[in-house]
């Protein structure tokens, strides 16, 4: 895969560069800040750009840079890395795009397998959300959603958590060692209980519906 990278911490940037190469990816651009990366990608593209959220231009250069990259290269996937997994940033990221986009903790991409899995899912158009954050969203939904989520079965909670991570039906099936058909049935049941009527066949719409449901307060904040 062709990857671009912007991160202002030299130690982390060098480490990620080496890990990306070891995983067999080609790093086509590597920069210490967002503006520099946008310039490097003026005449070439990458499959996925990896962006540190908290980098120049301050304060959250990763988000600004992502907007510019998405405008210039709509097909380029975006992976945000941060030291913090915050739902506030997740919502801002999803405002930039809801396809081929991801948000993960820096230390969690520290293996060839996880890094490649994350990049491949983004390259395939999926949303990838840090599992720790997805788990927190499912365990602590806002306001009056708590009771509804609490009424789900344990298996349904597993499926909801994996949906909140952005996983596809096949991805969920693989994680839970069940058939995609069984996953479909669980999802239909969950959506029924939550009162959601989104088109479950459309992957990114479904993820958005789930995340919006978990995050919204009664007055729709």
């Amino acid at each position: 895969m062709r990857v671009a990278l912007a991160e202002d911490g030299a130690l982390f940037r060098e480490g990620l560069l080496m890990l990306l190469r070891a995983a067999g990816h080609e790093v086509v651009a590597c920069a210490a800040g967002g503006d520099e990366l946008v310039a490097l990608l003026a005449n070439q593209s990458a499959d996925v750009a990896i962006l540190d959220i908290r980098m120049p231009p301050e304060p959250d250069g990763g988000l600004v840079t992502a907007e510019r990259l998405r405008a210039a290269h709509p097909a380029m996937g975006l992976l945000f890395l941060s030291h913090y997994a915050e739902s506030h940033y997740l919502m801002r990221i999803l405002q930039i795009g809801t396809e081929a986009i991801g948000y993960r903790l820096k230390e969690k991409v520290g293996s060839v397998d996880v890094l490649t899995d994350t990049l491949s899912r983004i390259d395939a158009g999926e949303i990838v959300i840090e599992p720790v954050l997805a788990k927190r969203l499912v365990e602590r939904p806002r306001g009056d959603k708590k009771d509804v989520v609490a009424a789900l079965s344990e298996r349904e909670l597993d499926v909801l958590r994996l949906m909140a991570e952005g996983r596809s039906n096949n991805g969920i099936a693989g994680q839970l060692f069940v058939t995609p058909k069984a996953v479909e049935k669980h999802i239909a049941s969950i959506f029924g209980k939550l009162g959601l009527h989104a088109d479950t066949a459309e992957h990114h719409r479904r993820v958005l519906a789930v995340l919006t449901y978990l995050r919204s307060q009664r007055d729709g904040e």
Partner: peptide, 10 residues
């Protein structure tokens, strides 16, 4: 420490 985690991954 995050960088160390990457080095261990390598």
């Amino acid at each position: 420490i995050s960088a160390l985690s990457l080095q261990l991954g390598l």
